[in-house]
Write a protein that binds this DNA or RNA. Sequence first.
DNA 1: TTCTTTGTTCGATGCATATCGAACTTAACA
DNA 2: TGTTAAGTTCGATATGCATCGAACAAAGAA
Lengths: 131, 131
Amino acid sequence: MHIELNTAFPARQKLIRPLSNQPFRGTVPGVKHYTHPAMSEVTLPAIMQALADPCRLAIVRDLQQAGGRALACNEVRLEVSKATRSHHFEVLRSAGIIFTEMEGTKCMTSLRRRELNKRFPGLLKLVSAGK
Amino acid sequence: MHIELNTAFPARQKLIRPLSNQPFRGTVPGVKHYTHPAMSEVTLPAIMQALADPCRLAIVRDLQQAGGRALACNEVRLEVSKATRSHHFEVLRSAGIIFTEMEGTKCMTSLRRRELNKRFPGLLKLVSAGK
DNA sequence: TTCTTTGTTCGATGCATATCGAACTTAACA
DNA sequence: TGTTAAGTTCGATATGCATCGAACAAAGAA
């Protein structure tokens, strides 16, 4: 018996796709404006994958507890290095879960709560309730 | 400045942990009884990770559409090899999402719907609705 | 102006995991 | 008694990704 392989089936997508090819080094706060996907482009598998990590789940929960107030990356209690922390925020951002904006040297991030509730009703509730 | 590294923080867990060390080769249908985690041990990150794959999401959706009826692995429309298919079912099983039982040479699987709805309310709805 | 704070990016490392073909086993069927 | 159907396991391969230290950049404070 012969099995036809994956053609029509949706392929796994890379979690983080580079948004620009500019050979940047270091931050450009105040200059760099973060890129956020349109919520219509956000897929459930990408959301799931972004939330499959305990660190990132913790970030989202902290943001939920902040109740709409934007937090600096720093304010989130996370016991990993700066680089790793930055990575996790980037993942959440490119998955469409958080919104980030520079303010001075800080980057303030908040949940895209309203949009998420519209596109994936029950998702945020699941996150906050899930033990 | 010095950063304290990950001690108290919940570590990433391996997705599939071997359930036995027996050097088996091949299936033992009718003899092998699949091992399923207690729902109380199931964690949200593990669930999320299991559902982060398009194949597995498709499996869960097919099971949802079957409306409680158990399906043979074969009956799920999946364009991957037997081995890969088996792998994905194992991931879903060890994540606590599906229940599998041998019947002759077939393994019949169903969603652990009631338990899931109790422990993670809204999860299955999210899966079926999410585009 | 110099130092500190904040966060990104790079390159490296090591582990996780998606995928396959092949070998295998049992149950059911011819 | 073969033969087929169904599904698992192994070993290999390639890729994904979490993690870190170091180098970097800009804004703000000293």
